[in-house]
Amino acid sequence: MLNRKDLLGIKELSVEEINLILDTAAGFKDVLGRDIKKVPTLRGRTTVNLFFEPSTRTRTSFELAAKRLSTDVINFSVPTSSVVKGESLIDTALTVQALGADFIIIRHSSSGVPHLLAKKLVASVINAGDGTNEHPTQALLDAFTINEKKGKIKGLKIAIVGDITHSRVAKSNIYSLTKLGARVRLIGPPTLIPKEIEGIGVDVFHDMELGMKDVDVVMMLRIQMERQGKGFFPSTEEYFKNWGLTLERLSLAKDDVIVMHPGPMNRGIEITSEIADGPKSVILDQVTNGIAVRMAVMYLLSGVRR
């Protein structure tokens, strides 16, 4: 059982809890395949999307998940809210809760914000990305997609390629995939991989050709353009030359390798279009599975606590 009010990160989840979420998501994926893609499960409840950072796909995915569970959804976009008038974070959240929110989906540029709100609020808080800390639902949908395509996660060789240091997606995935028994390797420039990260049970490769050998799954990360010009890598051209995913590099992996990307993609910088749109890409499956996984998370957190 998922005996918690909030989903803040993968770090604190047990293997059993992760598996429960993934199994539950399979039931919700059945729902998404029907003509009527909506269930009455959470009628009468309210979800608030509180996004302090731009996001299209995660916000839309949570919105759809919430609507398909029959909750009412309010999107609180920051530029139009009182936050620009200087309302504090906690006041904003308390206001949203007073409006009747049962679920608060939060994204914020500072790590730890969801954790702070979770302590202050009765509502369930779901972390939709906090700073460079975690993005738990992305890691869950990635695990779900790998499981769906490969039938297992245990023992698979999974490469995560790109800016590991600043990536909350990478961090959540490292936690979940190592817990689920995968052999995780990180590939990228030394400036973008934390020192001594091998200590948590992953391998590090700075040479992409070496790192790609025999992998079952390649998970590309977005090069965050806002980091460009800060000395982490010389130029986007140089980055592509060394760490971009090309057909030649992909051919070093297993024949049945799958390619993942959390989006949004920078085509021609971390991944070529022919791979992104090619037969090994499961990028669009990730998007669809994201809705099922988020429905599962909301459902499992929805037990009544009064």
Partner: peptide, 22 residues
Amino acid sequence: DIALYRDDLNIRKEQPVVRRTE
């Protein structure tokens, strides 16, 4: 699977396990 259609989802402390519908 009928878990998502139960009439006690608003009063339960823990939600029932969701199984496949095929």
